[in-house]
Deep mutational scan, measured.
Amino acid sequence: QVALSRTQVCGILREELFQGDAFHQSDTHIFIIMGASGDLAKKKIYPTIWWLFRDGLLPENTFIVGYARSRLTVADIRKQSEPFFKATPEEKLKLEDFFARNSYVAGQYDDAASYQRLNSHMNALHLGSQANRLFYLALPPTVYEAVTKNIHESCMSQIGWNRIIVEKPFGRDLQSSDRLSNHISSLFREDQIYRIDHYLGKEMVQNLMVLRFANRIFGPIWNRDNIACVILTFKEPFGTEGRGGYFDEFGIIRDVMQNHLLQMLCLVAMEKPASTNSDDVRDEKVKVLKCISEVQANNVVLGQYVGNPDGEGEATKGYLDDPTVPRGSTTATFAAVVLYVENERWDGVPFILRCGKALNERKAEVRLQFHDVAGDIFHQQCKRNELVIRVQPNEAVYTKMMTKKPGMFFNPEESELDLTYGNRYKNVKLPDAYERLILDVFCGSQMHFVRSDELREAWRIFTPLLHQIELEKPKPIPYIYGSRGPTEADELMKRVGFQYEGTYKWVNPHKL
């Protein structure tokens, strides 16, 4: 086992960053958080920038500027975001240094004079007029057009580079997404736009490419001749908990499936790229999406959770019991969808996408189930092999396979070949997804960000279904809070070829 401390991990990262040409360590950078008073800024962006600063992973002359409508001070920003920093008493001095680099400007999102004030403020910072500028839009999409237009007109660096990070949702359907994309691309070049999907920053999602293309053993079996089906799962054990009003506007397909799960599907299904260059990788992902037809209604199961009468606390409440959810809402909190990649490698292999709230566990994984062994000599005792990439929690890679049961006879039983990170790298604290992705933006690497043509294809696949749901308002199937979801989803999976045995229990190697 390799035991690495946080300091050692960050030392390795620093070495990698400083050796590259793309990370300008000594240049002045300004990180501007648009929507600095909001939840995302408070819980994710400010803490992430602090962790990067604490670990010495930001360029040395980096300033952080918050911008929002609320009249706040840096002290206010500190008060609301610091509880999420997880700072230790030993880091007190470092924390003071961090907040000394912070400033805040209040202004409207659609007022040109406010942006001119913001620009004057940035120019007044040390070497601010020639600094590289990175704008993070932690804002609702309704203000994107006004904000990007004003940034472009008043706040661009004339000497350094300018980059803009856009948070999902990128529209509600193909038409609104196209409108937003066309607007942003009329102001910024594609190499300046970073559409963030934080799932692409997760260690195991990034590991998929290495697993596939750096190991000879997987190449020959990664196709329709050997793989019976692919299941991509995202499960949350909690409901909307008072935030249903926002969720109800989008629903589970827009929230998770059309982005996170579809991105994971691309990494499983794509061909080997010409290189690890950002556009070479994204070219292959677009090719996969172009091979997927629009979702067919007979390959869809929609569910909505109801309270568990035997549960406790939140578990007793259904989705419609959330006071922020519109009365009688038919918005799905669970969806199972089957897609097919219609190309030579994957023809006929079902890709089953499942996601839901208020389920029995927290889990995100990719599961490849292989065909049955031909010419069975073990009297149907063999179960199908599976390769599982567990994204969260407890990152893991393992192969479910058959071995001989101890004893006199040739009785096979299920076991696993474990390729888990935790076994080799004991207690290594890896940077989280937002840390990686923000560092990628500083480096100018777009590999783990969504390109406009990729986004367009993703919406093309799901828009007809979303429009049909909005028009017909089908009643989702009720499922109990804390269950596996509607049984109809299991029946759909069985119908397209997935075999669920229920006889195997994964042993978490992190707890051995």
Rank of each mutant, 00 (worst) to 15 (best):
D255H: 15
D255A: 15
Q263D: 10
Q263K: 14
V268H: 00
V268N: 01
M270T: 04
K272A: 09
K272D: 03
K272V: 12
N277R: 05
D283N: 07
D283A: 04
E284H: 13
K290R: 12
C291A: 09
S293N: 09
V295D: 01
N298R: 10
N298H: 11
V301S: 04
G303W: 01
G303F: 01
V306C: 12
G307N: 08
N308V: 03
G311F: 04
E312L: 10
K317C: 10
K317S: 13
G318C: 10
L320Y: 13
V325C: 03
P326S: 14
P326R: 09
R327Y: 04
T331L: 02
T331C: 11
T331P: 01
A332G: 08
T333Y: 01
A335T: 05
A336W: 02
V337H: 02
V337G: 15
V338A: 11
L339K: 02
V341D: 01
E344H: 11
E344L: 08
W346N: 02
V349K: 01
I352S: 00
I352N: 01
R354N: 14
R354P: 03
C355R: 04
G356E: 00
K357M: 12
K357G: 03
A358N: 01
A358F: 01
N360D: 14
R362S: 14
E365P: 01
V366Y: 04
F370V: 02
F370D: 00
D372T: 02
V373T: 14
V373P: 13
D376S: 15
I377D: 04
F378V: 02
H379A: 11
C382I: 13
R384Y: 08
R384N: 13
I389N: 00
I389D: 00
R390S: 15
P393I: 00
N394D: 12
N394A: 14
V397R: 03
K400V: 12
M401G: 03
K405H: 10
P406K: 09
P406C: 15
P406F: 15
M408F: 06
F409V: 14
F409K: 14
N411W: 10
P412M: 11
E413A: 13
E414N: 15
E414D: 15
S415H: 12
L419W: 09
T420S: 13
T420K: 13
N423T: 10
R424D: 06
K426Y: 12
N427D: 15
N427M: 15
N427V: 12
N427A: 12
V428F: 13
P431K: 05
D432F: 13
Y434M: 13
E435G: 12
V441M: 04
G444D: 06
S445D: 15
Q446S: 08
M447D: 05
F449A: 03
S452R: 07
S452N: 15
E454G: 12
R456C: 10
R456F: 04
E457A: 04
A458F: 15
W459S: 13
R460I: 00
L465K: 02
L465I: 13
L466F: 12
H467M: 12
H467V: 08
Q468N: 07
I469S: 07
E470T: 12
L471F: 10
L471Y: 03
K475P: 11
I477T: 08
R484I: 08
T487K: 10
E488I: 08
A489L: 05
D490F: 14
E491D: 08
M493P: 03
K494S: 11
R495Q: 13
G497V: 14
Q499K: 12
G502A: 15
G502N: 14
G502C: 13
G502R: 12
K505S: 13
V507C: 09
V507Y: 11
N508W: 03
N508F: 14
N508V: 12
P509K: 10
H510F: 11
H510Q: 14
K511T: 11
